[in-house]
Design a protein around this nucleic acid. Sequence first.
DNA 1: TAACATTGTAACATATACATTACATTTTTC
DNA 2: GAAAAATGTAATGTATATGTTACAATGTTA
Lengths: 72, 72
Amino acid sequence: MKNNVKIARVQVNLTQQQLAEKIGVTRQTISLIEKGKYNPTLKLCLDICYTVNKTLDEIFWIEKGSDESEKD
Amino acid sequence: MKNNVKIARVQVNLTQQQLAEKIGVTRQTISLIEKGKYNPTLKLCLDICYTVNKTLDEIFWIEKGSDESEKD
DNA sequence: TAACATTGTAACATATACATTACATTTTTC
DNA sequence: GAAAAATGTAATGTATATGTTACAATGTTA
């Protein structure tokens, strides 16, 4: 699950810890999402969007079939 | 978790069953998502988008604080 | 209205998102 | 280059998304 969370987070000058606190999740969850190792829920995706001022399409859209990340 | 899955699904002339089969989930999952009773994962949101030819923003975006649905 | 297709939903099981704690590794700053 | 901050990640536990099966309710069509 590739995404642009890290880019967007850095753009608004937040650490993983700060983003996590604003959203109400743990830093580990943010870390794993940024590394593409989690398949986050819609609600969490939306909360991230609200906090970094982006839309779902800007941060989480990936073209069909272009997800190179592992299936595990 | 309000969304526009039902509208988009009907627009492309698919039943819940047909959409579910194309995506590889059960009909119940589609039903519960349409009724706003599930908080789907990003991967499933994307699969729905691909199948009904819409983007994440078109189907799943909701303005901050405008989610009237129940929490559980 | 009777058959049939579609949708809602309940009970129970399984997989996994996310929390908690802890520590290691990398990056920044002095 | 050492101290601190930021990030990666492992082990274990919990909550919940999703599967399975089954049946009821609603819509559609002859």
